[in-house]
């Protein structure tokens, strides 16, 4: 698996992509995590960015950047890996947003009112829901980070076990020159083809009119 990780970040371009993605996501989180204090998504939120929240922003940024890098790499390697990691890391991302966007915002009472909760029920339900996210923010962020870590590990695992990466060569349909792995994977790893590409086949001779 370390070998795969080295491959995922194995070029200056890929490292730049990872650093950029991590930076952008971490920047986003530095504004998002103090959202509870201001109810606004603005630079003034940095006034409430404690060291604790900064660490969370960096951790989530690096984790998300790594998962995105793995996903991009996996998308180019294995189509099935793209589907699996994309959905779950998206869930982790959304889950990490919940504490900030549900605590102290009008979102919860508005949603509850929309679904028909009213009167005493609205008061108690709003309080219960928002209180839960307010007091369990760290646990929810931890779960999000754990989910990102699992997705990163899962993506790396799939890449490790992919035949393309192990050097055994990608499965090749010898009948038409198409492969079961993505074309990019072939290009990246320069796996020798067992059959010349269709485009390289010699053109049939033109029939000359008699």
């Amino acid at each position: 698996m370390p070998r795969v990780l080295a491959e995922v970040l194995g070029s200056p371009g890929r490292i730049a992509g990872f650093v950029t993605a991590s930076g952008v996501v971490a920047f986003f989180y530095t504004l998002l995590l103090p959202f509870d204090y201001t109810q606004r998504f603005e630079f003034a939120n940095w006034n409430y960015l404690s060291p604790h929240l900064l660490v969370w922003a960096l951790a989530l940024g690096v984790a998300m950047g790594l998962v995105l890098s793995i996903q991009v790499y996996a998308m180019r390697q294995i189509v099935s890996a793209r589907v699996a990691t994309g959905a779950a890391s998206g869930a982790a991302f959304i889950m990490s947003l919940l504490p900030s966007f549900l605590c102290c915002t009008p979102m919860v009472p508005s949603l509850l009112a929309f679904v028909g909760v009213s009167g005493v029920g609205l008061y108690s339900t709003t309080g219960a829901v928002q209180h839960f996210f307010a007091v369990h923010q760290s646990e929810i962020l931890s779960a999000s980070l754990a989910l990102l870590a699992i997705m990163g590990w899962w993506g790396l695992r799939k890449l490790t076990h992919s035949r393309c990466f192990t050097g055994e060569g990608c499965a090749v349909d010898t009948t038409e020159g198409t492969t079961s792995a993505s074309g990019d994977a072939q290009a990246d790893l320069q796996v020798p083809r067992s059959d010349p590409p269709h485009a390289e086949r010699p053109l049939p001779k033109e029939k000359t009119p008699r």
Binding site: D36, Y37, T38, Y48, C103, C104, A134
Partner: peptide
């Protein structure tokens, strides 16, 4: 305000 609310504290 609500005393356990972050924006209320701030």
């Amino acid at each position: 305000v609500t005393t356990w609310c972050s924006s209320c504290e701030a």
